[in-house]
């Protein structure tokens, strides 16, 4: 809950909201605004969303309902390396569930969680459109194709060694 009218939103987001308020159906831009906010901040905080609600004049309950309905919105910070496992049909058929299991075991976290050291987050996507390379895993958008469960530990250590992270 915010008990004040203090501004904590980024100026460019405030500007965006102001612009939306001049258009028809300003409240319909809520999702767009949340997208921009997530892009800017990495994830959505309650404090930010309370302010969005006030400025856009949309009930905070609506903002909370919307932000938790859509899985694209993150309400928690992400790890330095976002590991995204494709759980599309083709990848499943080629054993994506085993890959997921391997990551779970290796990292000790579940889907949607981040390791305690803040390094890795486990996420999923549904079909990247490269089904021929299934099963596919992306780590910070770098694509790894035809992954096997055995490769998982190596993949993680290589990532740590080679990738700068976000």
């Amino acid at each position: 809950m915010t008990n004040s009218t203090q501004t904590i939103l980024y100026p460019e987001i405030i500007e965006l909201i102001e612009e939306c308020l001049t258009k028809d159906h300003p409240e319909s831009y809520l999702i767009c605004i949340l997208h921009k906010l997530q892009e800017r901040h990495g994830y959505l905080t309650q404090e930010h969303m309370y302010e969005v609600a006030q400025r856009l004049q949309v009930p905070a309950s609506v903002v909370s309902g919307v932000s938790t309905f859509y899985h694209f919105f993150r309400l928690k910070p992400r790890g330095r390396y976002a590991i995204s496992i494709c759980l599309g049909t083709a990848c499943f058929v080629k054993g994506a569930d085993k890959i997921l299991e391997a990551f779970r075991k290796e990292l000790g976290i579940d889907m949607g969680e981040t390791t305690k050291d803040g390094l890795f987050s486990l996420e999923n996507t549904r079909c990247l459109g490269v089904c021929g390379l299934a099963p596919v895993v992306t780590i910070n958008n770098k694509v790894h194709s035809r992954v096997t469960p055995q490769q998982v530990p190596d993949l993680l250590s290589r990532t740590l060694a080679e990738e700068p992270g976000r």
Binding site: Q46, Y50, F69
Partner: peptide, 26 residues
């Protein structure tokens, strides 16, 4: 507009904004 559904599917729950306690809501 105090109440909303949060989350979705089997996890849907009716609460005030951001699952705030009623006492801290509108």
């Amino acid at each position: 507009h105090n109440l909303t559904q949060m989350h979705r599917g089997f996890n849907t729950v009716v609460t005030p904004a951001f699952e705030a306690p009623l006492m801290e809501s509108v």
